[in-house]
Amino acid sequence: MKILAIDTSNRPLSVALLEDQTLLAENTTTVSKNHSVTLMPAIEEIFKQSQLKPEEIDRVVVAQGPGSYTGLRIGVTTAKTLAYSLNKELVGVSSLAVLAKGVQADAKTLLVPVFDARRDNVFAGGYMWDDGQLKNVLPDQHISFSKLCKQIMGKEVCFIGADVAKFANQLKELMAGQDYRIAPAESAVPRAFNLGTLGLLKEAENVNDFVPRYLRITQAESQWLKRNPQEGKKHGPYVKKY
């Protein structure tokens, strides 16, 4: 199976073409200031390098979130539209799982990829290797960093991600006496090769309904729900077609 993998969920940008488990071409950078400008040229480039035509791929795999809302929308819209207009399969993979996939560890280690979500909050999940497969054991969530630390106490923890450094002082305090380490710097950048291999075995999604996993409703909506607690999910529909 030939796969195009796209990750624009955070500051790094990574795209790859794979044939099953084998990498054909990958373009990973951390200097892209604007994924809207850089994503399509990066995709064009890897197709050129591997001498593939867009219609020759079988599946598009995209990092579905969490992450930067704008970054996610650029990646997911591009992936959705490519899959739809080429009539190919679409698969979404957790952006946090992509980081976890880059760290090999024993079966006791809890891998905890972390993205900064500002105001002492993070997006984080828990992953473990089990018989050569990466398993999600703690769902991806939007959570305060201190609560996250409480959830993972007593485990052998390996934090992953460029944003972990921002929490260095809190880590020392909150995880004092705990068995934890921070994954080496080279694993802090998500690679679309890892994304592609994670997406290889997943079931294809409905392209039309596919949206980013933001893991947070918008501020406007949470405030509105506070003012209108009885409305909840019964309100709507919000979008009308004509």
Binding site: Y69, T70, R73, V76, T77, K80, T81, Y84, S85, V207, N208, D209, F210, V211, P212, Y214, T218, Q219, A220, E221, Y238, V239, K241
Partner: peptide, 17 residues
């Protein structure tokens, strides 16, 4: 932000239509 989220929900449906 709400507008952006709705657009991504709708775009393929409109294209397909």
């Amino acid at each position: 932000e709400v507008a952006s989220r709705h657009h991504i929900e709708q775009i393929i449906g409109c294209l397909d239509d």
